[in-house]
C-alpha cells in the first residue's frame, strides 16, 4: 500500500508514544532506586544526586541475596525440566497418533484456566504434611505443572510447522536416522525450544502466589515474595528505595532476554495462542 509522508509521520508519532508508555514506569523505578536521603520523598521524577547507596544496601542484605539465589536456581531448574518434558510431549502430540492425546491437551488447558490460588492453598496444607513446605522442591514442582501447559502449547505449534519430510529426504540421500535427526530436525526445532524456554522462564520468574504461600523463611523464598516482605520485616528503616533497587536488579534479566530474543518471543506468544 502506498503510504504518504503525512500518514507515516502519524504512525511514527504513535510509535514514539508507545515506547514512552512502555518505558516511563521502568525509568521511574530506576530513578527511584538511585535516590538517597531527602530525594526519596522529593516527589520529583528524577533524583537531584544519583547514588548507588540502595544497591549497596540491597546486596549487603541476606534477605535479598538468598532470595535472588533461590529465584535464579529454582527458575533455571524448573525451566530446564519443563522444557525437556514439554518437548517430548509436544513431539508426541504433533507427530504421533495415540489415544488420550486430546486428554493431555485438555488437562493442559484446564490447568491454565484454573486459578493458581485455588491450587496454592491446598498445596500449602499438603506440603506441610509431607515436609515439602518451605523447600526448593516444594516450589519447583508446582512451577513445573503450571509452566508445562504453556511450553507444550508453544512447542506443539512450532513442531506442526516443521517440514518433517526433510528427515526422510536426508535419509534417502544416505544419512543415518540419527544424522538426519541431528543435522536436519534439531536445527529446525531449536528456535522453538528456545522460545518455549524463554516464555517458561518469564512465567516462573514472575511467580508470586506460590512464593508467598509455600514458603515461610529464606530457605526457598523467591525474589517477588521477598520483595513483598521487605516492608516492616526488614532491617531497613525506609525500604522504598532499596525495594526499587531490588526491583531493578530482578528486571535486568528480563530486559536482556527481551533485547536478545524479541522476534522469537513475539512469534512464540502469538503462535501458541492463535493456532493452539
Amino acid at each position: 500500500m502506498k503510504v504518504s509522508r503525512r500518514t507515516q509521520a502519524f504512525w511514527i508519532a504513535g510509535a514514539i508514544l508507545i515506547i514512552a508508555y512502555a518505558i516511563i514506569p521502568v525509568i521511574w523505578i530506576i530513578s527511584l532506586s538511585f535516590k538517597e536521603g531527602d530525594d526519596i520523598t522529593n516527589n520529583q521524577f528524577f533524583p537531584t544526586t544519583w547514588s548507588w547507596e540502595n544497591y549497596k544496601t540491597v546486596f549487603a542484605s541476606d534477605l535479598f541475596t538468598t532470595a535472588l539465589r533461590n529465584s535464579v536456581g529454582m527458575s533455571l531448574i524448573a525451566t530446564t525440566i519443563s522444557v525437556i518434558l514439554a518437548t517430548l510431549a509436544a513431539y508426541a502430540i504433533s507427530r504421533l497418533e495415540f489415544p488420550g492425546k486430546r486428554l493431555v491437551l485438555g488437562v493442559a488447558l484446564a490447568i491454565t484456566v484454573f486459578p493458581v490460588i485455588a491450587i496454592a492453598t491446598p498445596l500449602f496444607d499438603l506440603w506441610r504434611n509431607i515436609g515439602l513446605y518451605d523447600t526448593w522442591l516444594g516450589l519447583i514442582i508446582p512451577y513445573l505443572s503450571y509452566s508445562l501447559p504453556l511450553a507444550v502449547y508453544v512447542l506443539a505449534a512450532f513442531f506442526r510447522e516443521i517440514p518433517w519430510e526433510m528427515e526422510q529426504a536426508a535419509q534417502v540421500d544416505g544419512a543415518t536416522a540419527w544424522q538426519a535427526f541431528r543435522r536436519v530436525i534439531v536445527p529446525l526445532a531449536t528456535p522453538g525450544v528456545f522460545t518455549a524456554a524463554i516464555l517458561t522462564f518469564f512465567a516462573v520468574w514472575n511467580d508470586f502466589v506460590f512464593g508467598i504461600t509455600l514458603t515461610s523463611s529464606e530457605a526457598a523464598r523467591p525474589v517477588p515474595a521477598a520483595l513483598a516482605f521487605f516492608q516492616g520485616a526488614s532491617q531497613f528503616s525506609q525500604p522504598t528505595a532499596p525495594i526499587a533497587a531490588a526491583a531493578v536488579v530482578v528486571t535486568i534479566p528480563v530486559v536482556v532476554l527481551v533485547l536478545l530474543f524479541q522476534r522469537k518471543i513475539v512469534a512464540g506468544l502469538t503462535n501458541g495462542a492463535v493456532k493452539g
Binding site: I18, I19, T251
Partner: peptide, 30 residues
C-alpha cells in the same frame, strides 16, 4: 501502530515486551 509503522519496528517490539516480561510485583511497586 505496530502493524503500520515502517520505522522503529524493533524498538517498538522491545519496548512493548518490557511490560510483558517484567515481574508483576515489580510493576505493582513501580
Amino acid at each position: 501502530v505496530m502493524h503500520r509503522a515502517l520505522y522503529l519496528r524493533t524498538a517498538l517490539r522491545v519496548a512493548i515486551l518490557v511490560p510483558y516480561g517484567i515481574i508483576t510485583v515489580v510493576s505493582s511497586y513501580a
